[in-house]
Protein backbone atom coordinates (compact mmCIF):
# COMPACT_ATOMS: atom_id res chain seq x y z
CA UNK A 1 0.00 0.00 0.00
CA UNK A 2 1.01 3.60 -0.48
CA UNK A 3 0.35 4.28 3.19
CA UNK A 4 3.20 2.05 4.31
CA UNK A 5 6.27 4.35 3.80
CA UNK A 6 4.64 7.23 5.62
CA UNK A 7 4.50 5.70 9.11
CA UNK A 8 8.17 4.72 8.78
CA UNK A 9 9.33 8.11 7.51
CA UNK A 10 7.52 10.30 10.01
CA UNK A 11 8.69 8.62 13.19
CA UNK A 12 12.23 8.78 11.80
CA UNK A 13 11.90 12.52 11.31
CA UNK A 14 10.37 12.98 14.75
CA UNK A 15 13.17 10.95 16.33
CA UNK A 16 15.83 13.03 14.60
CA UNK A 17 14.16 16.27 15.66
CA UNK A 18 13.86 14.99 19.22
CA UNK A 19 17.56 14.16 19.27
CA UNK A 20 18.42 17.63 18.00
CA UNK A 21 16.27 19.26 20.66
CA UNK A 22 17.70 16.99 23.36
CA UNK A 23 21.30 17.72 22.38
CA UNK A 24 20.63 21.44 22.04
CA UNK A 25 19.12 21.40 25.54
CA UNK A 26 22.09 19.54 26.96
CA UNK A 27 24.50 21.96 25.32
CA UNK A 28 22.66 24.99 26.71
CA UNK A 29 22.52 23.34 30.10
CA UNK A 30 26.25 22.65 30.11
CA UNK A 31 26.93 26.23 29.08
CA UNK A 32 24.77 27.52 31.93
CA UNK A 33 26.57 25.31 34.42
CA UNK A 34 29.91 26.59 33.17
CA UNK A 35 28.87 30.18 33.63
CA UNK A 36 27.41 29.74 37.08
CA UNK A 37 30.43 27.78 38.24
CA UNK A 38 32.78 30.49 37.01
CA UNK A 39 30.82 33.11 38.89
CA UNK A 40 30.61 30.96 41.98
CA UNK A 41 34.34 30.59 42.26
CA UNK A 42 34.80 34.33 42.35
CA UNK A 43 31.88 35.12 44.60
CA UNK A 44 32.74 32.60 47.28
CA UNK A 45 31.55 34.08 50.54
CA UNK A 46 29.39 36.66 48.88
CA UNK A 47 25.67 36.49 48.39
CA UNK A 48 25.83 37.70 44.84
CA UNK A 49 28.33 39.45 42.64
CA UNK A 50 28.09 41.12 39.30
CA UNK A 51 31.39 41.36 37.54
CA UNK A 52 32.50 43.36 34.53
CA UNK A 53 34.26 40.92 32.21
CA UNK A 54 35.88 43.22 29.68
CA UNK A 55 35.99 46.86 30.73
CA UNK A 56 37.91 49.86 29.43
CA UNK A 57 41.66 49.90 30.13
CA UNK A 58 42.81 51.29 33.47
CA UNK A 59 44.09 54.86 33.42
CA UNK A 60 47.44 55.77 34.91
CA UNK A 61 47.02 56.72 38.56
CA UNK A 62 47.37 60.36 39.50
CA UNK A 63 50.50 61.32 41.44
CA UNK A 64 50.39 61.75 45.19
CA UNK A 65 49.55 58.23 46.26
CA UNK A 66 50.73 58.64 49.82
CA UNK A 67 48.28 60.00 52.30
CA UNK A 68 49.36 63.15 54.04
CA UNK A 69 50.84 64.80 50.95
CA UNK A 70 49.27 67.08 48.35
CA UNK A 71 46.51 68.74 50.31
CA UNK A 72 44.39 69.38 47.23
CA UNK A 73 44.04 65.72 46.37
CA UNK A 74 41.46 65.01 49.05
CA UNK A 75 37.98 64.25 47.72
CA UNK A 76 35.22 66.84 47.87
CA UNK A 77 32.32 65.07 46.22
CA UNK A 78 31.24 61.71 44.84
CA UNK A 79 28.66 61.15 42.13
CA UNK A 80 27.20 58.09 40.44
CA UNK A 81 25.13 59.71 37.68
CA UNK A 82 23.52 56.47 36.45
CA UNK A 83 21.55 56.09 39.69
CA UNK A 84 21.40 59.71 40.79
CA UNK A 85 23.80 59.42 43.72
CA UNK A 86 25.59 62.64 44.61
CA UNK A 87 26.95 63.87 47.89
CA UNK A 88 29.62 65.87 49.68
CA UNK A 89 32.59 64.02 51.17
CA UNK A 90 33.78 64.13 54.76
CA UNK A 91 37.02 62.61 56.06
CA UNK A 92 36.62 59.55 58.29
CA UNK A 93 38.80 57.19 60.29
CA UNK A 94 38.36 53.71 61.68
CA UNK A 95 35.97 52.84 64.46
CA UNK A 96 36.96 50.56 67.32
CA UNK A 97 36.00 47.46 65.36
CA UNK A 98 38.27 48.25 62.43
CA UNK A 99 35.53 49.44 60.10
CA UNK A 100 35.46 52.78 58.33
CA UNK A 101 33.19 55.06 60.30
CA UNK A 102 30.11 56.14 58.45
CA UNK A 103 29.06 59.80 58.73
CA UNK A 104 26.61 60.52 61.58
CA UNK A 105 22.96 59.70 60.88
CA UNK A 106 22.20 63.40 61.19
CA UNK A 107 24.22 63.99 58.03
CA UNK A 108 23.00 60.99 56.08
CA UNK A 109 23.51 62.84 52.79
CA UNK A 110 27.27 62.87 53.37
CA UNK A 111 29.75 60.31 52.11
CA UNK A 112 32.68 59.32 54.33
CA UNK A 113 36.13 58.92 52.80
CA UNK A 114 38.64 56.76 54.68
CA UNK A 115 41.64 59.03 55.18
CA UNK A 116 43.90 56.07 56.00
CA UNK A 117 43.53 54.73 52.48
CA UNK A 118 44.49 56.10 49.10
CA UNK A 119 43.48 59.47 47.72
CA UNK A 120 40.93 59.00 44.97
CA UNK A 121 42.70 58.65 41.63
CA UNK A 122 46.03 57.75 43.21
CA UNK A 123 47.39 54.21 43.15
CA UNK A 124 45.74 52.15 45.84
CA UNK A 125 42.19 51.89 47.07
CA UNK A 126 40.08 54.92 47.94
CA UNK A 127 37.32 53.78 50.30
CA UNK A 128 33.98 55.59 50.67
CA UNK A 129 31.15 54.80 53.06
CA UNK A 130 27.63 56.12 52.96
CA UNK A 131 24.41 55.25 54.71
CA UNK A 132 21.83 53.25 52.88
CA UNK A 133 19.07 54.56 55.09
CA UNK A 134 18.41 56.14 58.45
CA UNK A 135 15.78 54.92 60.88
CA UNK A 136 13.22 56.89 58.97
CA UNK A 137 14.17 57.32 55.34
CA UNK A 138 16.56 56.57 52.48
CA UNK A 139 20.07 58.04 52.72
CA UNK A 140 22.79 58.97 50.23
CA UNK A 141 23.72 55.41 49.15
CA UNK A 142 20.15 54.14 49.04
CA UNK A 143 20.40 53.38 45.35
CA UNK A 144 23.95 52.01 45.41
CA UNK A 145 22.54 48.53 44.83
CA UNK A 146 21.18 49.68 41.47
CA UNK A 147 24.67 50.42 40.17
CA UNK A 148 25.75 47.98 37.47
CA UNK A 149 29.21 46.98 36.24
CA UNK A 150 30.32 49.29 33.45
CA UNK A 151 28.75 52.39 34.96
CA UNK A 152 30.88 55.28 36.18
CA UNK A 153 31.67 56.88 39.52
CA UNK A 154 33.04 60.42 39.47
CA UNK A 155 35.06 61.81 42.35
CA UNK A 156 35.71 65.52 42.45
CA UNK A 157 38.82 66.48 44.39
CA UNK A 158 39.46 69.61 46.39
CA UNK A 159 41.95 70.76 43.74
CA UNK A 160 39.23 70.66 41.10
CA UNK A 161 40.47 67.57 39.32
CA UNK A 162 38.09 64.74 38.68
CA UNK A 163 38.78 61.04 38.80
CA UNK A 164 36.36 58.83 36.89
CA UNK A 165 36.14 55.16 37.84
CA UNK A 166 34.45 52.37 35.92
CA UNK A 167 32.54 49.93 38.12
CA UNK A 168 33.79 46.39 37.65
CA UNK A 169 32.14 44.60 40.56
CA UNK A 170 28.95 44.90 42.58
CA UNK A 171 28.40 42.43 45.38
CA UNK A 172 26.85 41.84 48.75
CA UNK A 173 29.22 40.46 51.37
CA UNK A 174 27.83 38.86 54.52
CA UNK A 175 29.15 40.31 57.77
CA UNK A 176 29.54 36.77 59.10
CA UNK A 177 31.83 35.83 56.27
CA UNK A 178 33.68 39.05 55.65
CA UNK A 179 36.72 38.92 53.38
CA UNK A 180 38.48 42.16 54.28
CA UNK A 181 41.07 41.83 51.56
CA UNK A 182 38.47 41.58 48.83
CA UNK A 183 36.48 44.48 50.23
CA UNK A 184 39.28 46.87 51.19
CA UNK A 185 42.31 45.51 49.36
CA UNK A 186 43.59 46.28 45.90
CA UNK A 187 42.24 43.93 43.24
CA UNK A 188 44.99 44.58 40.73
CA UNK A 189 48.43 45.89 41.51
CA UNK A 190 49.27 49.37 40.31
CA UNK A 191 45.71 50.48 39.66
CA UNK A 192 43.85 53.35 41.23
CA UNK A 193 40.73 51.75 42.63
CA UNK A 194 37.62 52.82 44.45
CA UNK A 195 35.21 51.13 46.85
CA UNK A 196 31.78 52.39 47.75
CA UNK A 197 30.34 50.69 50.81
CA UNK A 198 26.97 50.69 52.43
CA UNK A 199 24.74 48.27 54.25
CA UNK A 200 23.23 45.33 52.44
CA UNK A 201 21.48 42.06 53.02
CA UNK A 202 18.50 41.76 55.31
CA UNK A 203 17.73 44.07 58.20
CA UNK A 204 17.74 42.53 61.65
CA UNK A 205 15.64 44.69 63.95
CA UNK A 206 17.06 43.01 67.07
CA UNK A 207 20.62 43.82 66.07
CA UNK A 208 19.59 47.14 64.57
CA UNK A 209 21.79 46.42 61.62
CA UNK A 210 21.88 44.81 58.22
CA UNK A 211 23.41 41.37 57.77
CA UNK A 212 25.91 42.40 55.13
CA UNK A 213 27.70 45.09 53.20
CA UNK A 214 27.02 46.14 49.67
CA UNK A 215 30.34 46.72 47.96
CA UNK A 216 30.80 48.51 44.65
CA UNK A 217 34.31 48.28 43.23
CA UNK A 218 35.76 50.28 40.38
CA UNK A 219 39.05 51.32 38.82
CA UNK A 220 40.29 54.59 37.40
CA UNK A 221 39.61 54.95 33.69
CA UNK A 222 39.71 58.71 33.14
CA UNK A 223 40.90 61.86 34.83
CA UNK A 224 40.02 65.43 34.14
CA UNK A 225 40.60 68.95 35.31
CA UNK A 226 36.99 70.06 35.02
Amino acid sequence: MAAEPAPRGRPGLVTAAAWVVLLLGLWLWARDLDESEGGGAVTDGAAAAQVLRAGPPAARPLPGSATGSAAGSTPAGVAVPSVGIEGPVVSRGLDGDGAVEAPPFGNANEIGWYRGGARPGAAGVAVFVGHMDTRAKPAVFYRLGDVRPGEEVTVTRADGRTAVFTVDRVETVAKDDFDAQRVYGQHKRGRAEIRLLTCGGAYEPGERSYTGNLVVSGYLTRTGTG
Binding site: A66, G98, Y114, M132, R135, A180, R208
Partner: peptide
Amino acid sequence: NWHHQPWSPVTAGGGGT
Protein backbone atom coordinates in the same frame (compact mmCIF):
# COMPACT_ATOMS: atom_id res chain seq x y z
CA ASN B 1 48.69 52.49 54.54
CA TRP B 2 48.10 48.79 54.09
CA HIS B 3 49.02 48.58 57.74
CA HIS B 4 45.82 50.39 58.41
CA GLN B 5 43.52 48.77 55.96
CA PRO B 6 40.14 48.36 57.64
CA TRP B 7 39.11 44.81 58.40
CA SER B 8 35.48 45.00 59.45
CA PRO B 9 32.18 45.51 57.65
CA VAL B 10 30.69 48.98 57.88
CA THR B 11 27.58 49.90 59.78
CA ALA B 12 25.77 52.20 57.43
CA GLY B 13 22.06 51.79 57.73
CA GLY B 14 19.29 52.52 60.16
CA GLY B 15 16.71 50.12 58.80
CA GLY B 16 14.19 52.79 57.91
CA THR B 17 13.69 51.44 54.43
